[in-house]
Simulated scan of single mutants.
Amino acid sequence: MKWFKSLSVAAMALAIVTTGVSSANAASSLSGSIVINGSSALLPLTLQAKSEFQKLNPKVKISASSAGSVTGPQAVRKGIAQIGACDWDATKDVPGFKAFEGQIATPVAVIPFAAIVNSDVKVNNLTTQQLKDIFSGKIKNWKDVGGDDADIVIVNRAFGSGTRVNFQLKALEGGSIVSTGSNVKTVKSSGEMKTNVETTSGAIGYEALAYVAGSKMKALSINGVAPTEANIINGKYKVWSYGYYMTKGQPTGVTKAFIDYIRSAKFQNGSLKKLKFIPLSAIK
């Protein structure tokens, strides 16, 4: 009898181990490839999710690049990407861009945006009107907004940038952005924006908060309200947007699995928050 009981216990243990191995194998049997293009604001999030997802699913290959939000749904429409990362819902018209028909917009994160300045700028807060006057080219010296007597250098994102779309609509209330002049630069990505503002004395630009932490630039308050997670959640700070993954129709297969992972509670409340994005569930 004791021998029989021992054998039964051993059999049960083996069954549990075997089941665990089978489950692990099943979990890692997912295979396929995903090409992601579009938003540079979302790129840090995409790269982190890619790294984690590929460790869990080593048979999956993911390539990610960024050339501005509008290139995301464009790449999906052309069939060269399965996911188009975009800082607006590209199934709807926004100023300057028509809706991309036949695509599905799945929100994956809340993106806080901020006006940013070089660390030598002695201004910490600007009003909406001051921002509008600076970016339209009306105000050209920091002394006119409480800073030192120094030229303002405007760093712009190129047309097609989701960061630009959101900043112009929400921080500038749709106001104009000057595009030419000796004190104006235009850059193609969030990374280039970060580099230019950090290295250019008197520079001002706009950026997703994911690029600001630990950098040689600072995010400004707008109308006395700082660009923090708490102020976005309580409705005081308005310069933010949902970040979307655009797909041709409803996502399926490995594409759906990756999007489900980035939307999972574990990722949203873990890596996503560490990167200074805000979980979808935080906005009611």
Score class of each variant (00 low, 15 high):
6 S>F: 15
6 S>E: 14
10 A>K: 12
10 A>V: 11
11 A>R: 04
14 L>W: 06
17 V>C: 01
17 V>N: 00
29 S>D: 08
31 S>M: 04
33 S>C: 13
33 S>M: 11
38 G>P: 01
42 L>A: 13
46 T>Y: 14
47 L>P: 02
51 S>P: 11
53 F>I: 05
54 Q>V: 14
57 N>T: 09
57 N>Y: 06
58 P>V: 04
62 I>S: 07
62 I>V: 11
63 S>G: 10
67 A>M: 12
71 T>Y: 13
74 Q>V: 13
75 A>Y: 04
77 R>G: 15
91 T>R: 03
92 K>W: 10
94 V>C: 05
99 A>M: 14
101 E>N: 15
103 Q>S: 14
104 I>L: 14
105 A>C: 06
107 P>Y: 00
109 A>R: 03
109 A>G: 02
121 V>F: 07
122 K>T: 14
122 K>A: 11
122 K>Q: 13
128 T>Q: 14
133 D>H: 12
133 D>V: 00
134 I>F: 07
134 I>V: 09
138 K>I: 13
139 I>T: 04
149 D>K: 14
149 D>M: 10
151 D>P: 15
151 D>K: 10
156 N>A: 03
156 N>V: 07
162 G>K: 12
163 T>N: 03
167 F>T: 06
176 S>G: 09
178 V>E: 10
179 S>I: 14
184 V>G: 04
184 V>R: 08
186 T>F: 14
187 V>P: 04
189 S>V: 00
191 G>V: 15
192 E>G: 11
196 N>R: 15
198 E>P: 00
199 T>V: 07
199 T>L: 13
200 T>C: 05
205 G>Y: 10
207 E>C: 08
209 L>C: 00
215 S>L: 02
218 K>W: 00
222 I>F: 07
229 E>C: 05
230 A>M: 10
236 K>Q: 08
239 V>K: 01
242 Y>Q: 06
245 Y>D: 07
246 M>L: 08
249 G>F: 09
252 T>L: 12
254 V>Y: 01
256 K>Q: 05
257 A>L: 08
259 I>N: 03
260 D>Q: 02
265 A>T: 04
269 N>L: 10
271 S>T: 12
276 K>F: 07
277 F>Q: 02
279 P>V: 05
281 S>L: 06
282 A>Q: 04
